[in-house]
Nucleic acid binder design. Structure first.
Ligand SMILES: [Zn+2]
Ligand SMILES: [Zn+2]
Ligand SMILES: [Zn+2]
Ligand SMILES: [Zn+2]
Lengths: 132, 132
DNA sequence: TAATTTATTGTTATATTATAACAATGTGTA
DNA sequence: TACACATTGTTATAATATAACAATAAATTA
């Protein structure tokens, strides 16, 4: 059996929901919203989320325990992610900046470690919230 | 009453434990280990952790829900943090690289957002695990 | 096609992480 | 002392995530 290169029903249902949302969704909020589609248990959602993260269709915002759809066509896997997070309205945006990603992907320190992946989260106030 | 600029008993107990550990500790593992010192409830630990993070004495490894003592004397607050994480042995090291921190602290994109804080987590294999 | 293998699903239960609410206590200030 | 307010202790509960295992579906190969 070859490696799955399409989405299963549950994965598609979860992805559709996350993609429709303009903001990160929490796992149990996803669960609540897909119950009418037949996903009744947390594990069904978490398994779909795991796979979707793995293939880069969605990303996890670690500091928020929430999930957003990838808006960056380059993200075939979730191995180089950067986000901006407004600490007031919680708006989250995926940063798509080639200089930044190049800088971080090539980053080396003297630890002898080879980094294959990173996740960066910036925090601050978005334009809207700054002007309040 | 002026703002507290010293550690309370509970905060000191938790900090001592986290500083003694060479690796990140989970909140409930901390709880278990400080019970003999009188901290019996999760909240007592979480409150101490919150304050210690706020003043930069410890940092939270978001992807692991774990806490490490700060090894970087510059970290008066936890507002510019970077870590390397071995995905095999889970060893975590705080990265202290002034070029990197300068680059990230000055990072701007076209979103109009002013970033006051960031957290970066690199993943890979440490020297030891790479050579296995 | 039938048998085999493997991935995915469904389901129940439970583990892990974190916070709400509120009374009690301590500490600095007027 | 009286007041304000930060910190603590305590119980309960919310929120996030995984273990275990039986059932089903899909791909492979005999
Ligand atoms: Zn992406
Ligand atoms: Zn905002
Ligand atoms: Zn630090
Ligand atoms: Zn390692």
């Amino acid at each position: 059996m070859q490696k799955q290169n399409f989405l299963t029903k549950n994965q598609q249902i979860v992805l559709d929901l996350v993609e429709k949302s303009s903001q990160p969704l929490k796992a149990y909020s996803i669960l609540f919203n897909v119950q009418k589609k037949g996903l009744k248990a947390p594990l069904q959602v978490y398994r779909a989320l795991d796979k979707l993260v793995e293939i880069g269709k969605i990303h996890k915002i670690e500091s928020r325990n929430a999930f957003v759809a990838c808006k960056n066509s380059n993200c075939v896997v979730s191995n180089a992610t950067a986000f901006s997070i407004c600490e007031s309205c919680e708006k989250v945006t995926e940063i798509n900046n080639s200089k930044l990603s190049k800088y971080l992907s090539n980053f080396e320190d003297n630890s002898g470690m080879k980094y294959s992946k990173y996740n960066l989260e910036f925090f601050g106030l978005c334009k809207k919230c700054k002007n309040k």
